[in-house]
């Protein structure tokens, strides 16, 4: 049972904002500008974070880069095995991915399986020049060899804990909590 006591705030609004800004700068620096950059958000955790990063890049560089949303349900490796009936969302990538530099964005990286699925899906949409991965929180416990390129914070957690990223667009204050 989740009680107020077991909830731990590990990042506050200010720390989140600084992390996003740093990620944006790093992306622009690696890429030497915003040319050919696109952001693909992993549904649903990556969507709001992607918008923030895109906004930051626009503030710094004066360019609004294209953004798409990727639903990875159909690429999951546990669709058949899970005891929950799968629920899928829509994929919305309104541009061609060929030769693009993709920044794949998710809020938290954990086992790495979601990102594996996301990369399989992306490759079915075209042949990007590079795919880089940005996450706000890396909580460890990887089960497959995947490492993010841009990380807001590394937050070691226990396997049974939940790490939640809450951004103010969905109501409340920006915070990252461990439950």
């Amino acid at each position: 049972m989740v009680t107020e006591n077991s909830k731990r705030i590990v990042m506050d609004a200010e720390r989140i904002d600084r992390s996003i800004a740093r990620i944006a700068y790093e992306i622009l620096e690696d890429n030497k500008g915003a040319d050919d950059l696109v952001i693909i958000a992993v549904r649903s955790g990556g969507i709001m974070l992607s918008r923030r990063i895109r906004k930051k890049i626009a503030d710094i560089e004066g360019v609004v880069i294209p953004m798409g949303i990727l639903d990875i349900t159909l690429y999951r490796d546990d669709v058949i095995m899970t005891d929950k009936k799968p629920k899928m969302g829509e994929t919305d990538i309104p541009f061609c991915l060929n030769d693009k530099k993709i920044i794949l964005v998710d809020d938290v990286i954990f086992t790495g399986r979601t990102i594996r699925a996301a990369m399989d899906a992306l490759i079915d949409f075209g042949r990007p020049r590079v795919i880089r991965l940005a996450v706000l929180v890396d909580r460890g416990h990887r089960e497959i060899p995947i490492r993010p390129d841009y990380v807001g914070e590394k937050l070691p957690s226990s396997l049974w804990e939940n790490v939640n990223v809450i951004l103010s667009e969905s109501g409340g204050d920006d915070e990252v909590v461990i439950l």
Partner: peptide, 21 residues
């Protein structure tokens, strides 16, 4: 659900690995 699947048939690669096996 079918609405979401309609999009797959418009892709260049009209195949997803979901029901492998």
């Amino acid at each position: 659900t079918a609405e979401s699947f309609r999009e797959i048939s418009t892709r260049t690669i009209k195949k997803v690995p979901t029901l492998r096996g």
